[in-house]
Design a protein around this nucleic acid. Structure first.
Lengths: 247, 247
DNA sequence: CAGTGGTCTAGACCACCGG
DNA sequence: CGGTGGTCTAGACCACTGT
């Protein structure tokens, strides 16, 4: 891979190679917070690409919060935040790994069911009696139960996911992408605070009435059709949710 | 303003005028969900701009979730979501208004205080004994108490906000922008589920042990320095949080 | 004033999709 | 194969910043 120069023959577009070079500069402390980076016209010459291409790479950096630009002054390195890649769709395993814990799961149910009304609505199902693939899982972090997930999937055809497949991968999204070519592309989540009922308390090994973070998520695939509806409840004392907002 | 053509003399950049024209097409139902819109090379001619400019406008639309593009096929209208402008920084008043309720507030405290450690940390305050401007407010929607907010502000100089100023505007962010030229540009929020203690229960008119959505927010200004640290607790049964994620 | 990022052009070639 | 979006170029002028 490109370390410090652009490979014109690479399959990766030049602006993307440049983006990775810039990322590296920041990661390795070559560029530090609030530092002025070289002007576009200098980068253009340094890397032997057009200014448009440089700007495309810089825009990518800017959108993701790594750089900020000031007209007439220059482009600067943004101070590091808690996490730079917030608001990217991630599955449970990935987000738990990112936080430095060991993800785990116990499958409680798996198979076709009659969808509950809320799932019908979000999955845009026509007939209310149509069946949908449902997985109920208990989720762990470092072997401690953290949350309960109920996911409803719109699988192409009337496909089936086996317990073994899911156990092997661990990650549902990885499985969906490899097996069906389904890529989660957009998601909308709503969050609420609730209290654990008896069933949830037992599963999560907490008292009835403990606080839970209830998350509802609808996911669209790369074809912009709904692919998943998820309801989850996480232990209030063990799960935090992060989001980034811009103007 | 531009209705259906580009004004080359406008102060607004062409790509932005085009963006607004496209938005309008969707809002007015001229372009509907999953519909194929004209190819870039046709728009280029229709609006008498270069393809680069058309693409700049289309990218804007795409980033905000209004359009999606498929190589070799075309550009399509994205189906409408719950809210299109999620993940934009908004103050309490604005977000409550968006949901169709009447925002309100009761100021409980206002003035300089010694910041708590968590606020010190987030606001990057050097000396722990330095004073910071603090506002504690009870927040309402349709005259019902919804949440409690504790905000800590890094005001330029040792400025002061009066109760009257805040009451008049209602919106803190509007006040900060008008008075000090401070524009919230980036924010990171963390969410947790907690239980109401006695103080919170009394203020919010709920029982001790009711679920609360606890939100912590750090806000950066257009100069990319921290301007605000906010801790808030909202009634779990009356407040929902929305977020959008992309790939 | 010189230097920066912001906007815009006209044109080129590529990768991918569908008929 | 023609048509689509994706990438890239070389160059131009503007708006804003600091000196």
């Amino acid at each position: 891979m490109a370390y410090n120069h652009i490979d014109p023959l690479s399959a990766l577009p030049k602006y993307h190679q440049l983006y990775k070079i810039f990322l590296r500069k920041i990661e390795e402390g070559d560029w530090i917070a609030h530092q002025l980076i070289p002007p576009e016209r200098e980068l253009e010459v340094n890397y032997q690409v057009s200014r448009t291409t440089v700007r495309q790479a810089l825009s990518l950096m800017g959108n993701q919060g790594y750089l900020y630009r000031e007209q007439g002054r220059g482009t600067f390195v943004a101070p590091p935040k808690l996490q730079q890649n917030l608001n990217l769709i991630k599955g449970y395993s990935e987000s738990i790994l990112e936080r430095g814990y060991k993800p785990g799961q116990k499958i409680l149910f798996l198979g076709y069911v009659e969808p509950p009304p809320r799932a019908c609505e979000q999955l845009e199902l026509e007939k209310s009696n149509r069946e949908i693939f449902h997985i109920k899982r208990l989720r762990f972090a470092n072997n401690k139960p953290i949350g309960i997930q109920d996911t409803y999937l719109k699988l192409p055809g009337d496909k089936y996911i086996t317990e073994q497949e899911l156990e092997e991968r661990g990650s549902l999204y990885a499985l969906l992408e490899e097996t069906y070519g389904l890529i989660p592309t957009e998601a909308i989540e709503t969050l609420e605070a609730t209290l654990a009922d008896e069933g949830e308390a037992t599963l999560l090994n907490i008292h009835v009435g403990s606080p839970l973070l209830a998350i509802e998520r609808t996911v669209w695939s790369q074809h912009h059709s709904v692919m998943e509806y998820l309801e989850a409840s996480y232990r209030g004392d063990m799960y935090k949710y992060y989001a980034r907002q811009t103007r």
